[in-house]
Amino acid sequence: MKLGPALALLALLGSLTATAAQAQTVRIGYWSSGFSLGFGAVLETGRFMEGEGLKVEYVKLPDLNAPTKALAAGAIDFAIAAPLSGSLSVTADGLPLSIVLVTQVADLEFVVPEDSPIRAMADLKGKKIGNSPPGSSTAAITSAILETNYGFKPSDYQAVPGADTRLAQFLVQKDIDAAALRTVTLALIPEVKLRRLARFRDEWRKIAKNDAPPILGVGLMRNAWLAANPEGAAKVVAAMRKAYAFGRADKAAVAKALTETGNLDAADAKAYAALWDDIYTVSLEPGDIASIKAEFEIFKGVGSVKGTFPESAIVTAPYERSKTIP
């Protein structure tokens, strides 16, 4: 059947729109260690972004603050797990970035060597405590717990920054007295004999006065990319939601992804995969936003962030639009 001029033009415009949508490219960055590793591995091997019609470039970054820096420099478009404290700081400072998801919760524990004389959190006063580097959400949450629950000022203990594996080594060598380590790390080093003092979630509950876990990482997006690709942003969130659901349903597949992309051996990958439900989330519901705002005020109280909460830093449109994508 021959199309009339108007119909032919509409068909051409529709074709061009579809081609443009198919051509949407997103550069996704994540820290190639810690909690980010597992989700990034599943995203890559499962091709969830490609399943939404996106062209994707994955950028693996060397440390936990690197995704935020890469976004600020325009080197990536979306970070799957930027530290919340850093994200709040840069958005409060006016950098054109937006929080579009909550993606990680702080599932960590305060630990000491098994033979340590330290028996309680209050005994950490004056001690060397290993922790994530300054600027990380873990460091901010640790400061809030020690100050709010135990009255420790920064001068009351010595914070020793480092990656989890390095901190575990410091504990073995007795170079530090205690450390805040991720449950993932603890699961991967069963040979290191450590004793648990307290869990972040329990300590945070005392501060927040509710059962919501402390937020560790967020999906952070460049405003320029978000404005140019509103439908693409919704597809990114849809892919994240599907990857999260996939991980909850199939731990064996998560472990396989970790061996293929994360370079973990089978035993470590299985231990990591078992913690999926405890360390990840993909959400931006009103309760999540309330938790972000509460953390800002708590972080501000211990000097981890400054200024006033940047209301414009949270953009819900991609998350809400993703709910309509089958």
Rank of each mutant, 00 (worst) to 15 (best):
Y244H: 14
L258K: 02
F246C: 01
V218T: 11
G287Y: 08
E203I: 08
R196N: 09
D202A: 14
F296S: 03
K251I: 03
F246V: 01
A313L: 09
A180D: 09
K209W: 04
E191G: 06
S304V: 07
R241Q: 13
K306R: 15
S283V: 09
L258A: 02
E311H: 07
R195N: 01
L167T: 07
N263P: 02
F200M: 11
D211I: 08
T281C: 07
A243N: 10
D177E: 13
R222T: 10
P190C: 04
K209L: 13
L216N: 15
A267Q: 13
A239I: 01
G301N: 15
F170E: 09
F299C: 09
A313K: 03
A243D: 11
D175R: 15
Q173S: 12
A294F: 01
V218P: 03
A187R: 07
V302D: 08
L258T: 02
V192M: 06
P190Q: 05
A180M: 12
L167Y: 11
R248W: 05
L216E: 11
A249R: 14
V305Y: 11
G247N: 04
I207H: 06
S304G: 05
K256P: 01
Q173L: 13
V282S: 13
A273M: 06
R241P: 00
G301Y: 00
K270P: 03
R241A: 01
A266C: 05
